[in-house]
Design a binder for these strands. Structure first.
Lengths: 262, 262
DNA sequence: TAGATTGTTAATCGATTAACAATC
DNA sequence: TAGATTGTTAATCGATTAACAATC
């Protein structure tokens, strides 16, 4: 194993070896969390060493892509041997900034906001929900039982203290689309620079603010597109009876919500 | 306007013009739902005509990208004039398969599954939750009040009938990671070919199945990465006092306070 | 030494961007 | 006709892939 050293091409590489200066491609950054999760699972399962081939297949990517991705972090494997599972997991967690805890403020205590608070994946990866805010008097002050840590719905006035005190670094927008831009502006004004937006709205942020977006409606519409394509291909050439629904079309079975309205 | 024609390089391009044969780049498909949503809003606001420049800025993309994207659908604009808002919205909805309703089965009636059922963005875009299934006896049979359409939690045995009867075309996995692969296998076995996975797990699907993934933990970790980078840069050169809290800060103005729930 | 596997290189592919000819 | 704006082209950029030299 051995820690990283880096002969690279000439250039002695001044100073910081541990902190890293290189910029990592966005596509690679987006995959690191998956590598990290799988490595953690392997470690928990008692696996000490893994090859790029095995790790890649467990992560659902090609080994070439995995090695290329890891090469951006440094040289943490051993040729002819593979990767030390725990060592590599640590290096990735260090790169991702998971070695320190991060505080998350969620704005919007509706169904989604409440579900997020009780999401166990937060705490297990070093994220803590330090605030759940809303502007609706009906929910402000309500206690949420399901949460990992009991939490009370606060008001937007609680936002700034949370940021100023250093408790919150990441903001999550879980409001209806209409309120999203306004909420985002407040998050930024309060000092947050990393935002995750669940609202189905186009939101603009100032330079320097990193915004990620999760849009359920968009995901479903992409699936609808593929589903329609499948149907079309079926029409054109029903040759390869990829029989999705051999018999298909039966009266109904109204047990659960029939609907399909709009 | 006029429908698409395509001189391309030689090849006369046989048959189907209206249904479309061309394959649309994935990156474009992923943006079409946003274009569609914004066009719908413009239409509702009474806007009848829009230029690629204006539409693009409302969608948060460059006009070049927008025009390139739209060019994959056909030639639906008018040079020197712009795009007819409703006509373009219709063409996109047709391309995405939004002109017909789609049935969604959600597996996992935990916090997330319940939040999804009550998500209003479903119905408003032609998606109907036709089933909410779980294997936990404690929740099976429970009625969910928040839903657009009242719905009762069913069992996994309800899956196949929903698919066979043609009520469900899209499956959503909202279970813990441990159950995800098994649930996915069942969705596929039941005949579904379009799946949205919220479970933080690497899942493999057979050829021909389209799977989209939404991973909250991954999104947060990507943000953590950027947050850490910011902190590092701050250390190295605190020159440009990127003062996290410039001017901003107004009391509040809870005008659109109300809702923010769901 | 022989076998295994990494880290890197070079080729390919797809997406983005800028510019402009076509055309309303 | 003059001005505006699309649809397309060509250049650039970034990501993926395959192959292999380095090396354990």
């Amino acid at each position: 194993m051995s820690a990283a050293r880096a002969p690279r091409t000439s250039v002695p590489a001044l100073g910081t070896d541990a902190v890293s200066t290189r910029s990592i491609p966005p596509a690679t950054v987006a995959r690191l969390p998956v590598y990290h999760r799988v490595l953690t699972q392997l470690s928990d399962a008692g696996v000490a060493l893994v090859s790029s081939e095995d790790l890649a297949s467990a992560c659902g990517v090609s080994s070439a892509k995995l090695r290329k991705d890891l090469s951006h972090l440094g040289s943490y494997g051993t040729r002819g041997v593979g990767y030390d599972v725990r060592f590599l997991a640590y290096q990735i967690s260090r790169e991702l900034g998971l070695t320190q805890p991060w505080g998350v403020v969620i704005v919007g205590a509706g169904n989604l906001g409440q579900a997020l608070v009780s999401y166990r994946g937060f705490a297990s990866r070093g994220f803590a929900v330090v605030g759940l805010l809303d502007s609706n008097p009906d929910v402000i002050g309500r206690e949420l039982p399901n949460a990992a840590t009991p939490i009370t719905v606060g008001t937007m006035a609680d936002l700034e203290p949370l940021v100023r005190s250093g408790q919150a670094q990441i903001g999550v927008i879980a409001t209806p689309a209409e309120a999203a831009q306004d909420v985002c502006d407040r998050l930024v004004a309060a000092g947050l620079r990393s935002i995750l937006n669940f609202a189905p709205a186009v939101i603009t942020v100032p330079e320097g603010v990193e915004m990620r977006k999760v849009d359920l409606a968009v995901e479903l519409q992409i699936l609808a597109f593929h589903e329609q394509r499948r149907a079309e291909e079926q029409e054109v050439s029903p040759k390869a009876a990829a029989g999705p629904i051999p018999g298909a079309q039966t009266p109904v079975a109204e047990k659960l919500g029939e609907a399909i309205n709009a």
